[in-house]
Design a protein around this nucleic acid. Structure first.
Lengths: 195, 195
DNA sequence: TATTTAAGATGACGTGTGTCATCCTCAATG
DNA sequence: CATTGAGGATGACACACGTCATCTTAAATA
């Protein structure tokens, strides 16, 4: 063996982390191998000791970006489902989330990129969507299980769509309005269901 | 003057139309000048008679893709707002729409691309979002105007998010479920509001 | 019909980028 | 301590793509 395995793993993680952040901020095609390695404190030469191709890295980085987001979603095992749901909504449809895609939820940041990516990325995306839905199902108050699941999917769709649109829009007021009104409507719906 | 102005305009429209379709299907970065001109029945040489740069074309093509979608949304001046709303929901969150992004709504297909594009594209996106919201406000039954607008924004967010996610997901069943449950929940919400 | 002018074709250039061959260097083993 | 093998550095190649100079050709005008 040569250079410590721990060092290699650390380098690997640094590369993937940098790629995951840049992909969420600027998209898949903005990731350049040489530039990425520079960000990770390396040169472009060693790249192929870690990945068989650029495509391979992209797949792993998208997977990492998606998995990374799940940690955030799993925090806060509150005892009050209603409060927790409200907290998730406000955190997701927030200006901070909108303005920092590089550390935000990849489900909202990468839908189009994932559609055009490899199987690993699409699989990770699906897994993440299922996690969100399951989590929301557990927090929504509703009599019928089927109706409850409808509500969970609607909630996720609205969260993702609102953040995506708020990032694309040119007018700051409209952007804020999209976030605020989506949150309002989701809160009202949750409240009415709770009785 | 030389070659008929009508021919030039026709070429221009063909180029922009081809670009708009490809952008919605494969994203901005997939558009290559030479390939695009070939699709339009021309060679790459004449490109700069129409656009000052590739960026210029992208901006115009995104604008066109967004404007194109508004025609679809404006059709069907039905007398029954409830039926019209239901029709819009079912048409938007449909498998046909999901599977044909090249002719679908650009608000759902291009949020991330627009975020990284020029001012013209972002402005067109904002205009389109406002049109959708206004149209939905006019179709939603609700007493309070403010609440009505909340509902309209929520509806748009959910429509856009559902289509975007359904395209990224790997599992066909999950993809269908996202569309179907989002539609269910939106229909139920509209029905309850109608009393 | 002769002239003019611009749309479009042809071909080339420069740059950026993914990929790979080669060399260097140090940690792990004996 | 000598050896070795792999991580990382350096440099180069091949190719793709945006851009531009130049030529060709046909429509519009006198």
């Amino acid at each position: 063996m040569a250079r410590s395995q721990a060092e290699k793993d650390a380098s690997h993680r640094r590369i993937v982390k940098a790629a995951a952040a840049q992909i969420r901020r600027d998209g898949v095609d903005a990731v350049k191998v040489a530039e990425l390695m520079r960000e990770a404190g390396l040169t472009h030469g060693g790249f192929y000791r870690h990945f068989s191709s650029r495509e391979d890295l992209i797949d792993e980085a998208i997977d990492a970006a998606l998995t990374d987001g799940s940690r955030r979603a799993d925090t806060g095992e509150s005892q009050d489902p209603g409060a927790e749901l409200a907290q998730i909504i406000d955190g997701y449809v927030s200006k901070a989330h909108r303005d920092n895609p590089q550390v935000g939820c990849a489900v909202a940041a990468l839908p189009t990129d994932v559609s055009r990516s490899g199987s690993r990325a699409r699989h990770a995306y699906s897994r993440q969507v299922r996690r969100y839905i399951d989590r929301l199902v557990g927090l929504i108050r509703q009599a019928e299980p089927d109706t409850k699941r409808d509500e969970a999917v609607l909630t996720l769709s609205a969260l993702v769509g609102a953040v995506a649109m708020s990032r694309a829009v040119d007018d700051p007021e409209l952007s804020d309005e999209i976030l605020a009104r989506t949150a309002n409507a989701l809160h009202r719906r949750a409240h009415e269901a709770a009785g």
